[in-house]
Amino acid sequence: VFIPPPPPTEDELFTQLRVARDAKLTATDKYLLPDYPISADALSAVKAYRQTLRDLPGQEGAPWDGGGELTPWPELPAVQGV
């Protein structure tokens, strides 16, 4: 007899959300390096994107589905060199 696992708790969903969010932050770390060729406008957009990611767990409705399809992820800005 198959017994499905219990649904994740809110704490577990927040943990999943933060892990997914942290991976997105890590993916944009390179843009902040002083020698990365990025325009000032693109750098500003990346910083705003990263701030939105950091603010996500505090938004109303969090943790949604723990970083899945129901999570209102911000869109990564287009980053082009200088």
Rank of each mutant, 00 (worst) to 15 (best):
I3Y: 11
I3M: 03
I3N: 12
I3H: 15
P5K: 12
P5A: 13
P6D: 11
P7D: 12
P7W: 06
P8H: 05
P8S: 04
T9H: 09
T9R: 04
E12Y: 00
E12D: 07
E12R: 09
L13N: 09
L13K: 04
F14Y: 10
F14K: 09
T15G: 09
L17T: 07
V19F: 08
A20L: 03
A20Y: 08
A20M: 04
A20V: 06
A20R: 15
A20W: 05
R21D: 10
A23K: 13
L25Q: 14
L25F: 12
T26R: 14
A27T: 03
T28I: 06
T28S: 12
T28Y: 07
D29L: 00
L32T: 12
L32H: 10
L32W: 03
L33Y: 14
L33Q: 15
L33I: 09
L33A: 14
Y36F: 14
Y36G: 12
Y36K: 11
P37N: 14
P37Y: 00
A40Q: 15
A40N: 15
A40H: 07
A40E: 09
D41M: 12
D41F: 10
D41Q: 13
A42S: 14
A42D: 15
A42L: 04
A42C: 02
L43P: 13
L43V: 08
L43T: 07
A45M: 13
A45C: 10
Y49G: 06
L53K: 06
L53M: 03
L53R: 10
L53F: 04
R54E: 06
R54L: 02
L56H: 10
P57H: 02
P57E: 01
P57S: 07
P57V: 04
G58C: 08
Q59H: 09
Q59T: 15
E60D: 13
E60G: 14
G61D: 03
G61Q: 02
A62Y: 01
P63M: 03
D65I: 07
G66N: 00
G66H: 02
G67H: 10
G68D: 00
G68F: 07
G68N: 01
E69N: 03
E69K: 00
T71A: 04
T71C: 05
T71R: 07
P72H: 02
P72Q: 01
W73E: 02
W73F: 06
P74H: 09
L76Q: 10
L76R: 06
A78Y: 05
A78W: 05
A78C: 06
Q80R: 04
Q80N: 05
Q80F: 00
Q80S: 11
G81I: 08
V82H: 02
V82A: 09
